[in-house]
Design a protein around this nucleic acid. Structure first.
Length: 487
RNA sequence: GGCGACGUAGCCAAGUGGUAAGGCAGUGGUCUGCAAAACCAUUAUUCAGCGGUUCAAAUCCGCUCGUCGCCUCCA
């Protein structure tokens, strides 16, 4: 089996073949830090978190670099609105970003370079482009000469002519060609600035990724990732700069994830239809959010809704409940023998293979999660068939299946909490909202059972309704009455 | 206007040439005094529409309709 990844550059799935044997070098475009992150940023972070975890699980060494854009027009504008220093604003939202990422439980990248700490590298790269005639200074700025890079447009699948036909390019008299883009911006009064051979100013947006990826991963590396909205112009321009400077290939594989939408419209700051990560985490757990996000393959759009999050919550609970039951199994000495058919055993044991097959197909987490649910269904069936009399052999089989689910769950970042603990915690949360203690409930159950024994259904139902009013549900089973929280 | 993606059951979502995974909801059943919860079973002769290629198409090709995205900051 081998891992195939969709490459935006070739518009097809390609075999992952790292340049250095077994070592994957990955660069992902991170945030521009001027505001709180929304669910779209969460998807980006979680998708690449999953990619890195899966690659490592598959035995690759991964060097994961994700940058911070900490100098940019938006940062400067926001800072001046708030009468703040641009650097301080950027730093503050990097802190907020970490708070959100920690809450989501994402792994830290190996390197997290900031643009402002690599001005020198950018200046050198721009100088190289100027020396090669691929860039030119003009009016305090420096521009990339698009016509000098023959392959311009190969990532986004458009030609310079096509784009001019679009005529949405701002008129700028300093450019030789309307499609030329800025590498270095001359500073206006009061703006943050650095010195350069072309005067004081700051880097253009695209050059930072070219300079930092080059510094940490080399001229050519394996995978470059980001959101679909970065394909043009950001990544197209990165390719032009990097390939223009080095004369070599830049990234071999380009991975782009789809957007999070709300009512089928892209979630974005400009549309104002966004929810921040912390908004959502107030209502839902990180694992619930992850299950929701991974229920769709990363390249497809993902429509955010309360109902979808609720579905994810229900689904996650279902798996946890199954795991909790398995965790509490103990073999019965009097059990006759295994009740598991050879076919079912095979299916349980093939979970990892099925999971890998799905993930190897361009990280198809939706399909991979389906394997979890199929396994849960099968485990539940076996639990039910055995009843209280489970043979040791079957116990072991189920415990192994449960352990495997949790091990693989770690790749998408779910099912990492103690299943029995999760169930207990949910009960404790509901209890906390009532005046009742566990003992009070036990007493009420006893009172009700006495009524039931006397066939006094009115009293029995009254007790049940009383508890139901505070979201506590009574369940009469063969083993007696237990209580649980209302779902 | 240019470029691109998508359209699969009530909803979400896999499947990318060999006869429709999975989740949620629904329905039936087990359990129960009745319930509830849980569990089990079940739910698309059909994949936006129309043509074409093929022994075989949701999957490939063409056209039509619809939705969305990029072309300006954007994950």
């Amino acid at each position: 089996m081998s891992l195939r990844i969709y490459n935006t550059l070739s518009r097809s799935k390609e075999l992952l073949q790292p340049i250095e044997d077994n070592h994957v070098k990955l660069y992902v475009c991170g945030i521009t830090s001027y505001d709180y992150c929304h669910i779209g940023h969460a998807r980006s972070a979680l998708v690449f978190d999953m990619v890195v975890r899966y690659l490592r699980y598959r035995g690759y060494r991964v060097t994961f670099v994700r940058n911070f854009t900490d100098i940019d027009d938006k940062i400067i504008r926001r800072a001046s609105e708030q009468d703040m220093d641009a650097a301080a604003l950027a730093l503050r939202f990097i802190d907020e970003f970490y708070t959100d990422m920690d809450a989501l439980g994402t792994l830290r990248p190996d390197l997290e370079p900031k643009a402002t700490e690599h001005i020198q590298e950018m200046v050198e790269l721009i100088q190289l482009l100027v020396d090669k005639g691929m860039a030119y200074p003009s009016g305090g700025d420096v521009y990339f000469r698009v016509n000098r890079y023959a392959d311009y447009g190969r990532l986004s699948g458009r030609s310079v002519e096509d784009m001019q036909a679009g005529a949405r390019i701002e008129v700028n008299e300093q450019k030789e060609h309307p499609m030329d883009f800025v590498l270095w911006k001359g500073a206006k009064p009061g703006e943050p600035k650095w010195t350069s051979p072309w005067g004081e100013g700051r880097p253009g947006w695209h050059i930072e990724c070219s300079a930092m990826s080059r510094k940490y991963l080399g001229d050519t590396f394996d995978i470059h990732g980001g959101g679909k909205d970065l394909i043009f112009p950001h990544h197209e321009n990165e390719i032009a700069q990097s390939c223009g400077a080095s004369g070599l290939e830049f990234a071999n594989l380009w991975m782009h994830h789809g957007f999070v939408t709300i009512k089928d419209e892209k979630m974005s700051k400009s549309l104002g239809n966004f929810l921040t990560i912390r908004d959502v985490l107030q209502e839902y757990s990180a694992e619930e959010l992850r299950l929701f996000i991974f229920s769709t393959q990363y390249r497809n759009p993902l429509d955010f809704s309360q109902a979808a999050l609720e579905d994810a919550r229900t689904g996650l609970d279902r798996i946890y409940e199954c795991l909790a039951q398995v965790a509490q199994l103990s073999p019965a000495a009097e059990a006759k023998g295994s009740v598991v058919s050879g076919k079912d055993r095979e299916k349980l044991e093939s979970l990892e293979t099925r999971f890998q097959r799905a993930m190897d197909n361009d990280f198809n987490t939706a399909q991979a999660l389906g394997q979890f649910f199929e396994t849960v269904k099968l485990v539940n069936k076996i639990l039910r068939t055995s009843g209280a009399q489970m043979h040791q052999e079957d116990c072991i089989l189920l415990e192994e299946a449960a352990a495997k689910i949790r091990q693989l769950g770690d790749i998408v970042g779910i099912l990492q909490r103690d299943p029995v603990g999760v169930m207990a915690e949910k009960r404790a949360q509901v209890l906390a909202k009532t005046d009742l203690s566990e003992e009070d409930i036990a007493e009420l159950i006893e009172k009700r059972n006495a009524a039931r024994a006397a066939k006094d259904w009115a009293t029995s139902d009254q007790v049940r309704d009383q508890l139901l009013a505070v979201d506590i549900v009574l369940q009469d089973g063969p083993g007696g009455t237990v209580w649980d929280i209302r779902k």
